[in-house]
Design a protein around this nucleic acid. Structure first.
Lengths: 188, 188
DNA sequence: ACAGGATTAGGTCGGTCGTCCTAGGGGTGT
DNA sequence: ACACCCCTAGGACGACCGACCTAATCCTGT
């Protein structure tokens, strides 16, 4: 893997696990196993690598959503796949929260210029969810999409504070039930 | 106001607006208008002032919950008061998120020892909500309390990223409706 | 073999971080 | 008046931060 991509991958992981502010150039360089000078050759400022990480996450998100769509036969199945993030990434979420949500929260506090870019990843989910909700006949697909996102964020936040597995199970089941309900009687 | 209390108040505000990691001793000292040396007389380490801030927030939370309780005539009214945080603190939440949730998220990322203490503030809400849900005859008051907390956290997270007033209004209305539903048919 | 751009290593800069220390101010009790 | 102690100011420390620079190395095309 080229050095640049390696740096982005390491920064991505460290930003997720430690947060953006708490991660230094030295941290990333040490993790990758290169010198700080080499690091600076690829990224001139810390903002620059943040932009690269956000772009990488956005691209991965797009690919993930496309994959879910390709592997699902119905709109409802797509929505269920979304909820199953918590099944697949449960351990990580319990330790470090949602990668998108925690980054946006941090950038919002720092008044960082990249907040809209990070928020755009949320928007990818939002539009994707809205599209499938609309396919189900949901009358207000965008509002419902935001609702699902909010529910997910709430679960992630409390999961990382309380580490309560049963709570996560209950909330996942509720979200699945909500999607089933929308699929069967979308006008409600 | 004594210096110590002034420092705690300033740190509380700065931790909320900028985050814990992004706030330095100098920041706080400058805000209060005292020297760093004086600051160090009152708090020897950064962790120490964090503990003080968390204790202060916990105390304020207890007082707030007691006040809500005193001003409400029914358990349902108490629960509605909880949801109305978003009405009262909407502007702040849209800019900096939930004070408790964002702090817990940050401390979780930093693997900070004070995470349980910060989480205890969540627990104050949790038990308070559960108590009133139980009074309503809710079969699983603690689970429902966690659910309400999660919903609130989700709203706060998305509010600070999207700044969408209509979204907040919809979610608040939904929570009020949910509480009314629990109050009228608690067995469901 | 050689030139030249791409890449890497490592040192350095000014600034800020958390921490610590000492000297003095200001009030109180004797 | 004097001793005492709470409080304050401000400087200094070692470490680390992001940022920058230069020299050496690698690789590729000719």
């Amino acid at each position: 893997m080229p050095t640049r991509a390696t740096i982005i991958a390491a920064a991505d992981d460290l930003f997720y696990r430690q947060g953006y502010a708490a991660t230094s150039f030295a941290d990333i360089a040490t993790t990758v196993g290169i010198s700080r000078g080499n690091f600076y050759y690829h990224f001139k400022t810390k903002d620059e690598i943040l932009d690269a990480v956000i772009a990488e996450r956005a691209a991965r998100t797009k690919a993930l959503l496309a994959q879910w769509e390709a592997e699902s036969t119905t709109p409802a199945a797509c929505l269920h796949r979304f909820v199953d993030i918590f099944v697949v990434n449960r351990a990580k979420i319990m330790r470090h929260g949602c990668p998108v949500g925690t980054l946006c929260a941090e950038l919002a506090k720092l008044d960082h210029a990249a907040l809209p870019d990070a928020g755009a990843i949320f928007t990818l989910f939002r539009h994707w969810l809205a599209r499938h909700l609309e396919a189900l006949g949901c009358p207000e697909p965008d509002a419902q999409a935001l609702h699902l996102l909010a529910r997910s964020q709430g679960i992630a936040t409390l999961a990382s504070t309380f580490h309560d597995e049963a709570f996560i199970d209950r909330e996942i089941a509720q979200l699945h039930a909500l999607i089933d309900h929308i699929a069967t009687s979308p006008e409600a």
